[in-house]
Amino acid sequence: MSDTNRQDDWQAAVLGELTGNGPAAADVRTPPGGPAATPVRTAAPAGSTDPGPGPGAPQGVGFPGVPESVPVRGGEGGGRDRHGETAGRRVLRSLRGALGGSAARAVAVESGLAARVQQPVTTGRHIVVTSIRGGSGKTTVTALLSRTYNHLRHDPVLTLEADAALGTLPVRLGVESLRWTCADLARIVRPSMQLTDVTGYLVPLPDGGWLLPGSQGRIGAQVDVAAYRTVTVALRRYFGVTVVDCETLPGEVARTALDTAHARVLTTPATAEGLDSTHAVLDWLATLPVPVLPRTVVVLAVQSPHPAVDLARAGERLAATGAGVVVLPYDRHLASGGPVRTALLGEGTRLAAVRLAAEALQRAVALPAAGGAR
């Protein structure tokens, strides 16, 4: 990174606020041996039963009170075997593809979107997914984005959970156990760490990439603003794209995440009430001093086979605000809960996921974040 880009780096200002030492103190490239590289501790105190860093954790970096690995609850059963589309719909689509060029056109469209998802980034991009109410498909959309970026991109991708303690992101991503959390890592992350050190504290995902959970599923263990800022500042240099499953608005972490994100994804159910609430939020965003609507994508999540709203008209109204709009169609596999399995998604859902990933990354790369990131 050039000196100019380093000066424009939004993390420098954020971490400077946390340390009280100004932007210079936030340079995440502090050489090993500097003050920030001092480990928390390298040995347990006399008489302590602390076993030290767990398996896969970096050597030389200690942590008081190493957390135990706990199994993820809620992943049993669910949408494992149910396909997103009915058998009849799949057969009909196959026949149409055999009789015409629709299949070739679909492949061409998806290939063009995939090329946009694979575009290079000069610095790590943060894409924050949030909503204004629960049950809007926020975590499902995060899981879809995570799988899409991990599948199509060639650089490391991080998925970060900044939601309440009982979030379902680990379940949706097919994770079996959790250990280190965002709050844990915020206390031990150091500028001298390499990518291999950092990933020792992360959860490897079945289809590639890593997850940093917000908790181990215990009530009260939530991510606060200080932990969120510390982790996102420190980890940005390791990952080309970070997808954040954020708490719902107007939570404090959600506001902080939206303010510092390169792109924002706002999920809403495709209902009359959901659309009204979304328009209210977009009107509020339009009044902010720094324009954020051009960096926002609204996901209209269809939650029934027969939506009660005109999706085309709703999309046009939302797009008139300057935000992007992607319709996520009803999918039986997603509606079943459990781990999201790409092979079981409907064709329309897969295409919508790639379109959303391309749209969000394009806005994250083409435009600076509200916090001044480049």
Rank of each mutant, 00 (worst) to 15 (best):
M1C: 10
D3G: 09
N5A: 15
Q7T: 09
D27Y: 10
T49F: 10
T49G: 13
D50I: 06
P55A: 14
A57H: 11
P58H: 05
V70G: 08
V72C: 05
R73I: 08
H83C: 11
G84E: 06
A98L: 13
G101L: 01
A104L: 02
V107L: 03
A108D: 02
A108W: 00
T122A: 11
A143H: 01
Y149W: 09
E176L: 13
R179E: 12
V189D: 00
Y201C: 11
L202Q: 04
L205S: 04
Q216P: 00
V225Q: 06
A226W: 08
A226Q: 09
R229H: 14
V231P: 00
P250Y: 12
E252H: 11
L258H: 05
T267N: 12
T271E: 13
E273C: 01
S277E: 14
S277V: 12
A280M: 07
L282V: 14
P294N: 05
A301P: 03
A312F: 02
R313A: 15
R317K: 07
V325F: 12
Y330N: 03
L334A: 13
A335F: 14
A335P: 11
G337T: 14
L345P: 03
A353S: 12
V354A: 00
L356P: 09
A357T: 07
Q362V: 11
A364T: 04
P368L: 03
A370R: 10
R374D: 13
